[in-house]
Computed example of a mutant assay.
Amino acid sequence: MHEFGADHREWEAQVQWFGREYRCIAFAARGYPPSDVPEDERLYGQDFAAADIGAVMRHCGVERAHLVGCSMGSFASLLFALRNPGRASALVLAGVGSGSTRSAAAREEFRRTCAARGDALTRDGWDGAHAEETGHGPTRIQLKKKNPRGWAEYMARLRTRSGLGTGMTMRRYQGMRDSIFDWEQDLRALQVPTLLAVGDEDTPCLEANLFLKQTLPNCGLWVAPRTGHAINLEEPAAFNEAVASFLSTVERGRWSLG
């Protein structure tokens, strides 16, 4: 499950690697072609994002799966696991938690920012300043510094995204979703083996990841140094190795040592 600023194509390095041993399914979220782009804003939000995971699994004949997400994809994966006991055999949550805070004032400011950005994307689309602002943001500039060619490919894909679909997603999903901190009671009961993956320069997500590490009972935290938000693009080899080691340990029944 991909992040807001990506689509299913950003998982290619993972699909090629893990496809050697696993059946890998990457899909474009609603609002991201070739998936449908609903024009009704009421058809966007966290409930749809979580339910869409189940819909894809049903369509592909998958009852239970390891779920791997990045950012909004991680949020949807975690919500799906909470709402569908037994359907997730493991969770890899990369860059989860932006916008989640204990401060009501900070949360309201985040929502206002998402609403304004969503309106701008719906109006202007991505072929212009919005793409440049995103690609040069403080949690994404790391990719350009490490891998200029990879960053250029990412930017080329970014400019093709639906302004309507991502604008609605920004307003209705990103801006109006719960704070992860609100789920504390349910999270403490979630036994699914979980790997948190976060870059140490992904500042908006650090507090939430520490909270999840302290709250989820069957959880590990992997931090990639000098890395921003798109951890699977910035450090694909390290990310793949960490995820492969985690899944192997889970499948051998050695993740939970209690």
Rank of each mutant, 00 (worst) to 15 (best):
S89K: 10
C70N: 14
N147H: 15
S35V: 07
E241D: 15
R87T: 13
A237M: 11
N218Q: 08
A224M: 14
R102M: 07
S89E: 10
Y173L: 05
W255M: 09
T169C: 00
D36Y: 06
A105Q: 09
F4Y: 09
H2G: 04
I231D: 04
E153M: 10
E133Q: 13
T203M: 05
G69V: 01
I180S: 02
V56D: 02
G135A: 15
L196A: 11
F4N: 01
V198M: 00
D40Q: 04
D52W: 04
A90C: 13
M57H: 12
A76L: 09
T169R: 00
M176Q: 14
G5N: 10
G19K: 12
G61V: 11
G253D: 08
W255E: 05
C205L: 03
G118A: 03
E63Y: 06
S35C: 06
N147S: 14
E10L: 14
V37M: 08
C205M: 07
L164M: 09
G73D: 11
A238P: 04
D178Y: 14
Y154V: 03
V37E: 09
H2Q: 11
Y44T: 01
L216E: 03
L187V: 13
G228R: 07
E39T: 10
V68N: 06
I180G: 03
L121C: 02
L93H: 00
V243G: 02
E109N: 07
G175Q: 04
W151V: 06
R123S: 15
E12F: 13
R159W: 01
G118M: 01
L233Y: 07
C70P: 00
G135R: 14
V250R: 12
D7T: 08
A208C: 15
A88G: 11
P33A: 04
L43Y: 05
N218V: 03
A29S: 11
H229C: 12
Y22D: 13
